[in-house]
Design a protein around this nucleic acid. Structure first.
Lengths: 290, 290
DNA sequence: CGTTCGTTTGACTCCTCTCAATGGCAGTGG
DNA sequence: CCACTGCCATTGAGAGGAGTCAAACGAACG
């Protein structure tokens, strides 16, 4: 069944005009979320065995950073909506994202989509799996990636005392993120979910040395909803509510200005973030759980 | 704050009678879920460096199975409710569960508990982390474990070409489980969550060669609720509903008889499980999403 | 036999989903 | 230059599923 959903999704990817047709053909898959500019041709992962990669990768084994493994690989470009790989495909490559954002998601049998994460520039995708990809990856914005065959990647890592702990750390971070997401989905209400989400992006933005507390959200409300376990309407309503509270302010099409970061942190309900709680005042002190 | 919650939880673990007192002292932590027989003393993880373990572990390096690393370690016994380690503690040990069941959970600032998983006999806990435990572990039933220092474990693994992929596979399985859990929490209703849960246990039970489709659920409704992102009332009501549908039947205090496994699989809504869908008939064909 | 703890059941509330309509922006073609 | 169209976002009204509060029940245990 998953194969069917996946196949159907690919079909949608390949469509030129008739994407709504596919939806009617398979009533079970009512919401296969055709991507914005799905007119682009499907991105086929090449199955060539890059023998030369292996040699090159191992020879770079003494380098300290995982990214250096990818340094000499050709850069591949993805247009928004283009797929990098599909759930269920045999996991032949590991990817280093140089620029852009991707969504990582699964489609379940009734056609719903669950975004399990977003991947940004500097991240590496496709490490923590054996055999087949557990999820699909799709570009949200124009994206540049470099790829390495798993074989090359694994060999380089196996040979390097330096890289192995890095890979392990990477997997641990992924695990920690998954746990946080489980906490969010388990017992946070819409406002807390959104605040947690924005807070994460705010931290990332600020740590990159941004001057203004403006977060860029390349994804659509649908993406956010599918990530946070909410509908687009609820996401939209919650943003409106936070704006009217004065926590957020508008800042362009795909951006939000965080006016009260500390309130945002409080509303996120993670609890253990006290750093800047007194930088602004709580307007509405309510803290109810559903 | 997390430290406070954790500390408060430890306090509760140590309590003899006055566990409700602690709750009132810290209004934020209204539901610290004192464990059933919390009268037991707190289990302190020993910090001795087992130098001899390391030698022994490496000398066992040529063995094929991860469990053999633990084979010569002394068996430790945990009574129900006893803690193995706490969230935030520095992750000094890796554990091999020989017998019994543990819950793996996190406490968030408002006192809620999220169970991220259950650990059964044959599982290994504490692998996929660096530095500190991301969660607490607590025995549900009488449990037997063996421990190895991380140092010994890591060294043995690093030295063995055989063990490394096993550890990697283990981490991948954990990751896959986390993803499945995210799907469950993201977009399944109470019935689907419970069915998924029961189905997982049923599969485990049957694969162990059980003759009867009876799943043993050592945990309480509260544990199930905290795992599935539901309240005890909803868990209870859903079980009642499934029983009245004829899918489940009572089978003792902590057990459930699965009368219609295929219906259970259908209701779980995972989609890609067709194997035995025709073994029984769907009574109520409804398949709504909330 | 009484207490305690876990479970079940009921009544009610409320948060989020669903359905539906509107608004706004961007790209396209006349 | 402007209407048209498609997509995304917003807003509203209504419904329903799960949470909350409360009480009763049942099993285990001293």
């Amino acid at each position: 069944m998953r194969e069917l959903a996946s196949a159907c999704y690919r079909l949608l990817q390949n469509r030129t005009v008739f994407h709504t047709i596919s939806i009617r053909v398979l009533p079970g898959f009512g919401q296969l979320y055709p991507s914005k500019d799905g007119g682009s041709a499907m991105f086929l992962t090449s199955n060539r065995i890059h023998g030369y990669e292996i040699a090159r990768a191992t020879e770079l084994g003494e380098q300290s950073c995982l990214h250096t493994l990818f340094a000499r690989q050709p850069v591949e470009h993805l247009t928004p909506g283009q797929s990098l790989f599909f759930e269920g495909d045999s996991a032949k490559h590991v990817f280093d994202v140089i620029e852009g954002t991707l969504r990582i998601f699964r489609i379940i049998s009734d056609g719903r989509r669950i975004i399990t994460g977003f991947v940004h520039a500097g991240d590496i995708v496709g490490v923590s799996l054996k055999g087949n990809y557990l999820y699909s990856a799709e570009a949200i914005t124009a994206t540049k990636v470099r790829r390495l065959t798993r074989k090359a990647f694994d060999m380089a890592v196996a040979d390097s005392e330096e890289l192995r702990p890095q890979v392990f750390a990477h997997v641990c971070d992924e695990m920690a993120a998954a746990q946080d997401q489980m906490v969010l989905l388990s017992c946070k209400n819409a406002e807390e979910r959104l605040c947690s989400f924005l807070l994460k992006y705010l931290r990332r933005t600020m740590s990159e040395g941004a001057l203004q507390p403006i977060v860029d959200l390349p994804m659509t409300r649908l993406d956010m909803g599918d990530y946070l376990g909410l509908t687009i309407e609820t996401v939209s309503r919650t943003i409106t509510k936070l704006t009217s509270k004065g926590v957020l302010g508008p800042a362009g099409r795909h951006s939000l200005r965080i006016i009260k970061p500390a309130t945002l942190a409080q509303l996120a309900g993670d609890g253990d973030e006290y750093e800047d709680s007194r930088r602004d005042f709580v307007v509405h002190g309510e803290r109810r759980r559903h």
